[in-house]
């Protein structure tokens, strides 16, 4: 359920980028900020630590425009990927209207991907999200690495729900817009008051 302010005629949807540490969640937001019309994206808030790891969350607001007299915005957040920040992830997922799961395609990241995916689905249950109908898109990132897992293997491991997937090289902006577009459409399609 998005945030709706009838007095100010505003609707804000919340999109959360989930995934293991260093899988490219913040990079997705940075590229969205670079690629899209700068007038539609406000300043991005990045809370990286010195090791370029997100400590709490990153935040990027994107103004979709005026619809039926309402000013509509997508607020995009990343969660910290490291296992020890489970409390932060749970807080950030609260009230999310849709999620992008960013997986790392390198074979050495198989277990980390799976662990993060399991933590995400456990969080879905605790927040009362229906994992079948909830807006969720999977992004298989870093497809330009020398060694990558094949797509069918990643699907078998992470996508038992048959959600829409995209291959990406987020650092180069590839697959980033396709991913945010798909999750946005799923969110709007499911929108109810």
């Amino acid at each position: 359920m998005p945030y709706i302010n009838y007095d100010k005629q505003e609707i804000a949807f919340k999109i959360v980028y989930f995934g293991p540490g260093m899988s490219g969640k913040t990079t997705n937001l940075i590229k969205i900020h670079e690629i899209l019309d700068p007038q539609k994206c406000s300043e991005m808030v990045v809370l990286d630590t010195e090791e370029e790891r997100t400590l709490f969350f990153d935040f990027l607001p994107f103004d979709l425009g005026s619809i039926c007299g309402f000013s509509v915005r997508f607020n995009m957040y990343t969660v910290p990927g490291q296992v020890q920040y489970e409390a932060s992830r749970k807080l950030i997922l609260d009230g999310a209207d849709g999620v992008v799961f960013v997986a790392d395609s390198h074979p050495s990241k198989r277990e980390e991907n799976l662990l993060s995916y399991q933590m995400m689905t456990e969080n879905f249950v605790s927040h009362g999200f229906d994992p079948v109908t909830y807006p969720l898109v999977l992004q298989f990132n870093k497809r330009d690495l020398d060694q990558v897992m094949n797509i069918s293997e990643m699907n078998a491991s992470l996508n038992k729900g048959g959600h829409k997937t995209f291959e990406a090289v987020a650092l180069k902006g590839q697959g980033v817009i396709e991913t945010i577009k798909e999750v946005s459409k799923q969110i709007v399609t499911r929108f109810e008051i």
């Binding site: 899209l36 019309d37 539609k40 425009g65 039926c68 929108f191």
Partner: peptide, 17 residues
């Protein structure tokens, strides 16, 4: 009406770049 207009807007905005 909101859904229909928003879906069209998303297509227009995200296809553009």
């Amino acid at each position: 009406g909101f859904r229909e207009y928003a879906l069209n807007l998303i297509d227009r905005i995200f296809d553009k770049p």
